[in-house]
Computed example of a mutant assay.
Amino acid sequence: MSDDPDAIRADIEATRRNLSGDVDALADKVTPSKIVDRQTRKVKGAWHSLSDRVMGTADDVGGTVSNAGESVADAGRTVVNKAQGNPLAVGLIAFGVGALVASLIPASNKEKELASSAKDAAQPLLQEAADVGKQVANDLKEPAQQAVQSVKETAQEGVSTVKEEATDRASDVADDAKQSQQRLQSDQ
């Protein structure tokens, strides 16, 4: 440690900045909205990765689209080639064709009944999902409040430490100044 007051002030300011940065980083890490945002990005990333693996990327499509005339002529072979060894792609294509055909045929009374009963049966599940969502939010609330309290306590401790160090250093500087003054007076 230096006895220079400017160096001591600079040390105190550096300590404050470091503490402030640590407190901000900790607060950012435990903020519920930030936690949700990070989880959302993870899920979206996983979904896009899965989607790219199943459906292919824009680069995969770009080569096929570049020569439109050839693409139309080779479309059947391209679908077969892409689908070979990829049962998921075949299933998605079949599902799409089935959905298209089903949308063209009007629903029968039996289908309407089944759809209504499925909707009624799903209602408790929707309520249960909402309850689970509320429970998760409540479960996250307490740890978040504890984290906020911990951050506050850490910040208060840091402020106290900085104040104590500043007071000690100021006292040391004052003592050194008195000693220097006494030495000067005794030398005269």
Rank of each mutant, 00 (worst) to 15 (best):
G56Y: 06
P5Q: 07
K119Y: 04
L100R: 06
T161F: 13
R17L: 12
L140W: 14
D168N: 09
V136M: 04
S103G: 14
L126C: 02
V97C: 03
Q182R: 09
S103D: 12
V101G: 05
N81L: 04
A129R: 05
E70G: 11
L104R: 15
V80N: 08
I93T: 04
G69K: 15
D131L: 15
A89L: 14
S117V: 15
A58R: 08
L114C: 08
V36T: 02
D4V: 02
G62Q: 15
G98V: 08
S66I: 03
Q146A: 14
I35N: 02
W47S: 02
R77D: 11
A83P: 01
A102G: 13
L140N: 15
A177E: 13
T31I: 06
A73C: 03
N138R: 10
R183F: 00
G98S: 04
Q156K: 06
E70V: 08
V136C: 12
G45W: 00
I8F: 03
E13L: 13
K29Y: 14
A147C: 12
G63M: 10
D28P: 04
Q188Y: 07
D24P: 00
D24G: 00
N109R: 13
Q84S: 09
V23C: 08
D187P: 00
H48L: 12
S108C: 07
M1H: 15
D3G: 09
L100A: 11
I8P: 00
R183G: 02
T78E: 13
V43H: 11
S103M: 07
A144F: 02
S33P: 02
K44V: 13
A27K: 07
Q188I: 14
T31C: 07
D187Q: 05
R17E: 14
S180P: 05
V132H: 03
V136D: 09
S49G: 04
Q149A: 11
A130C: 02
P32G: 09
D52N: 15
I8H: 01
D60Q: 01
D176K: 10
D52K: 09
E153Y: 04
A14T: 04
A14M: 12
V97G: 01
A27W: 01
M1L: 13
Q181P: 00
A10C: 08
V43E: 06
V151L: 05
K29G: 05
A129G: 03
K152F: 02
D120A: 14
Q39Y: 14
D74N: 11
D120L: 12
K34P: 00
N18R: 12
G21D: 14
A58P: 00
L104K: 13
A46T: 00
D59M: 12
P5L: 06
Q156W: 05
G158I: 07
A7G: 07
I35H: 01
A73K: 15
L88H: 07
K82S: 07
S116V: 05
T40S: 14
N67Y: 06
I8M: 10
G45H: 01
S160T: 08
S117D: 15
R16Y: 11
A94E: 11
R53I: 01
